[in-house]
């Protein structure tokens, strides 16, 4: 029998380097004119903010890096942006859409 690999919940913090696993596919759907995320037996309909965050989830940037970029881009307070991103990514991590690199 295969050795059981212990798995733990990904807890998203400022130093997490998030990525979308290979089987999660985010793409722009021309027919619908919006972004979609294809996942096992699920289709998600991310809003503009989620799309902006997920595009930066490249396994290299940390959550803090992403927050800094978007805080400048959207001219929003860094602490608010960071908290929003962590909460959003935690939710996506619990759904299996995002993992930590």
């Amino acid at each position: 029998m295969a050795e059981m690999i212990p798995r733990t919940r990904t807890i998203v913090t400022g130093t997490t380097r998030p990525q979308m696993p290979r089987h999660i596919k985010m793409r722009h759907d021309a027919g619908r004119g919006r972004w979609i995320i294809l996942a096992p037996e699920r289709v998600y309909d991310p809003d503009d903010v989620a799309v902006a965050v997920l595009k930066l989830c490249d396994a290299k940037r940390t959550v803090d890096d992403i927050a800094a970029t978007l805080s400048t881009e959207y001219q929003a307070p860094l602490d608010v942006v960071t908290a929003d991103i962590i909460s959003m990514l935690q939710d996506l991590a619990d759904k299996g859409v995002v993992t930590a690199a």
Partner: peptide
């Protein structure tokens, strides 16, 4: 099992 196994 939150974050480990998603239940439907």
């Amino acid at each position: 099992l939150k974050g480990i196994l998603v239940f439907d």
